[in-house]
């Protein structure tokens, strides 16, 4: 299932969180050889994890981590503005309707549907919170994966070659794309919406509570 968890809520999901940070170490340090820090627990964490971001996590049926991404609004501190302004053509991007998506991670051997499910979550966030664009930082392999699931970002700039290549790109979700991505994820839009409502509170449930 898809989970939406703010940083300060991770302690209620200790095992899932630990696996996410270890899978990030596996992807970014071991497989991609990016210059990231891995701590004594084997966790890949950086300064942006300390800003209480919103994590979207795909939890496998057995409770393990399948994949995840990290979101922050661009009106605050974000990676693209602090580390990659040259890839944006100089300067910063800042808007309440543009969020940054970083550390898009898939666990080793994850089902390809996981990436689509995470993109679907991005669509829910856009629809639910008035977000119009995501600006993302991702590795070269993800470019192919995004293309396969039919939600390619527009790449604004890249640096490095091969495994260490880093791209900055933009997503613009049309509601049409959401149905398509849901299909690629093998999920019904209703189930996806239910998970979103469970995380952020449902309008219907509140109404029932008031009546009851």
């Amino acid at each position: 299932m898809l989970r939406y968890i703010y940083g300060d809520q991770l302690k209620a999901h200790e095992r899932l969180a630990a696996e996410m940070f270890r899978d990030r170490a596996d992807q970014f340090k071991i497989r991609l050889n990016w210059e990231v820090n891995v701590d004594a627990h084997g966790f890949e964490r950086d300064e942006y994890d300390d800003l209480n971001p919103l994590y979207v996590i795909w939890e496998n049926a057995d409770g393990t981590h399948g994949g995840s991404m990290r979101l922050l609004p661009t009106v605050g501190r974000v990676m693209v503005n602090e580390h990659f302004p040259h890839l944006l053509g100089g300067g910063s991007i800042s808007s309440l309707t543009i969020w940054e998506c970083t550390r898009f991670c898939l666990s080793r051997g994850a089902n390809p549907k996981v990436a689509a499910a995470l993109m679907l979550a991005g669509g829910e966030i856009m629809e639910g919170f008035g977000v119009e664009h995501f600006v993302g930082v991702f590795d070269a392999r993800m470019v192919r994966i995004y293309r396969r699931i039919g939600s390619s970002p527009e790449v604004l700039g890249q640096e490095g070659e091969g495994r260490v290549q880093i791209s900055v790109g933009l997503w613009h979700f049309a509601s049409v794309a959401k149905a398509q991505v849901a299909q690629k994820a093998g999920l019904s839009p209703e189930i996806s919406r239910l998970w979103f409502d469970r995380a952020f509170g449902s309008k219907e449930c509140a109404e029932l509570a008031k009546v009851g």
Binding site: T74, I93, S95, L96, E132, E154, L156
Partner: peptide, 17 residues
């Protein structure tokens, strides 16, 4: 030489600023 979508992002960000 960028897409219209990307133009929208730059304009969006400029509008907020």
């Amino acid at each position: 030489t960028i897409s219209e979508h990307t133009v929208r992002v730059y304009v969006e960000s400029a509008r907020f600023k």
